[in-house]
Amino acid sequence: MIEARNLRFSYGEREVLRGISLEVGKGEFVAILGPNGAGKSTFLRCLAGILRCEGVFLKDRPVRDYSPRELSRILAYVPQRVEPGFLTVFDTVLLGRRPYMGLTPSEKDLEVVEEALKRLGIEKLALKRTNEISGGELQKVSIARALAQEPEILLMDEPTNNLDLKSQLEVMRLARELAKGGKTVIMVMHDVNLALRFAKRFVFMKGGRKIADGSLEVLSEKLFEEVYGVRVEIGEVRGVPVVVPL
């Protein structure tokens, strides 16, 4: 579905990605983990086509060859931060329909927006401005907008930031459901335990390189020490692995 082939990226002189290869198929749910400055967000932006990079392929075609409109129908990206403003929640989510509509939204576009709002449980906020709602609600608006795009691939940069415990679980469950429904979900995460509980595949990054990649069996206490520089113990609660820093 989406693939990075020896992906390199630099901001000016500073090399951020030093040759990353990764192939993600349809319906996978991948968490990208790693310490601050590992290049996770940059990697995600490259995949999303937000940063112009060589070596990213979407359905075996370089991402660079896609037109912005074409790309936006396949890929939706949820950034870490959204600027709050004077746009209503409804109109913000409606932007997710821009890849499909002409100058005015169709009835179908409005329905898709209603549906996305309901899916995130924020339909009551529809006519509020985004500078009148909380940071967590704004994050959900941003995710609803990505859903309204009806993408095949959903790229999310720390989507559980700003969210309370309940909303974190809701968002992760939603992501899991979407992956089960055939969408590809790739998420940059800081909360290791949340990732372990919901994602199916884990990519560990450090210093612009991929350190490990695989399902739960790649986890080891040694890996955490190598990636994060922290000694941990991996236990299990109700069949879910739990990482406890020592």
């Binding site: 912005p68 990206y77 950034p79 403003g85 746009l87 997710g96 890849p99 990505a146 795009q149």
Partner: peptide, 9 residues
């Protein structure tokens, strides 16, 4: 909404 969202849509 910011450049990233604009590009994403």
């Amino acid at each position: 909404l910011g450049d990233e969202i604009a590009k994403s849509v």
